[in-house]
Design a protein around this nucleic acid. Structure first.
Length: 270
DNA sequence: ATGTCGTGAAGGTCACGA
């Protein structure tokens, strides 16, 4: 069976539920993971997605900031959300597919890693310190909880572009948060510690440039094309052989009132 | 150095986070 998993930082699920439904209709992912829903759980637009047959929805939101959700047409069992850095700030949720045929038993973890502010010095910028601690805890989680044992997928807006060709200019980005050496090293350390396989880069190796985010601030984002690969899909070793393809929906950045991130999809033959 | 978004609480714009 073909299993399609997508991730998308939607930057307000209420404002953009129309874009989400368009994406679900056009691309039919089995599982869509959303970040930055910015929506309390009791105001999540469940009905919009259920209408399209996405009847299984796990949400972990709060008012105004962050928030993650998993919207699925395959049934699942909720696996809960882990609080990182001692904060319950709606940055993780997980499910295990169940009664879903050959996809049963696949666990999906959906993350929204802290952005980290502007100044890349943890001594004077506590947001950057938080981001680094969060990445440290993700590594500990891989070590202690062994989330990559079995069939598992990590997706999300990890807010780090780890490889040189994940940004428009490696040289000009090395002091910019999302591509500083310490963040890149820590994110690659999480992958290594968990023995995760970077699905997007397995299918589209360097040196090809891959971006999933373009700033709202550029006058003409397409002409400038100063993108970054901030959104990721990792699979456990057991699923690596099932990787069948991936797609980054760049055109979604041109939709009306877009998110600054675009959907990232991975196809698995399970 | 700037640029642009979304939210929420005011209050008819601003602060904050990204």
């Amino acid at each position: 069976m073909r299993l399609n998993v997508a991730t998308w930082n939607i930057n307000s699920v209420r404002l953009r539920s129309g874009l989400v439904t368009q994406f679900l209709q056009d691309h039919q992912p089995d599982v869509l993971c959303l970040q930055e829903t910015k929506c309390p759980d009791d105001r999540f637009p469940l009905g919009d997605f259920r209408k399209l047959g996405y009847n299984h929805i796990a949400i972990h939101g709060q008012k105004g900031y962050h928030g993650v959700a998993i919207v699925s047409r395959l049934p699942f069992e909720e696996r809960g959300s882990k609080a990182f850095c001692g904060k319950n700030d709606a940055r993780h949720i997980s499910v295990s597919l169940k009664d879903a045929g050959p996809a049963s038993g696949v666990t999906v973890h959906n993350f929204y890693v802290p952005a980290g502010g502007d100044i890349p010095d943890p001594a004077i910028n506590e947001k950057f310190a938080h981001k680094l601690s969060f990445l440290d805890e993700m590594r500990d989680w891989c070590h202690l909880d062994k989330p990559s044992a079995g069939k598992a997928i990590v997706v999300g807006d990890l807010n780090v572009a780890p490889l040189e060709n994940d940004v428009w200019s490696h040289k000009q980005m090395r002091d910019v948060i999302s591509h500083t050496p310490i963040e890149r090293e820590k994110l690659l350390g999480v992958i290594e510690c968990g023995d995760w396989v970077d699905a997007i880069r397995t299918l589209t190796p360097e040196p090809e440039r891959v971006y999933t985010w373009w700033s709202y601030r550029a006058k003409d984002w397409q002409a400038a094309n100063r993108g970054r690969r901030l959104d990721h899909v990792w699979v456990s070793r057991e699923l690596a052989g099932s990787l069948a393809g991936s797609a980054i929906l760049r055109e979604a950045r041109s939709w009306e009132r877009p998110s600054d991130h675009v959907p990232v999809m991975v196809h698995l033959d399970v």
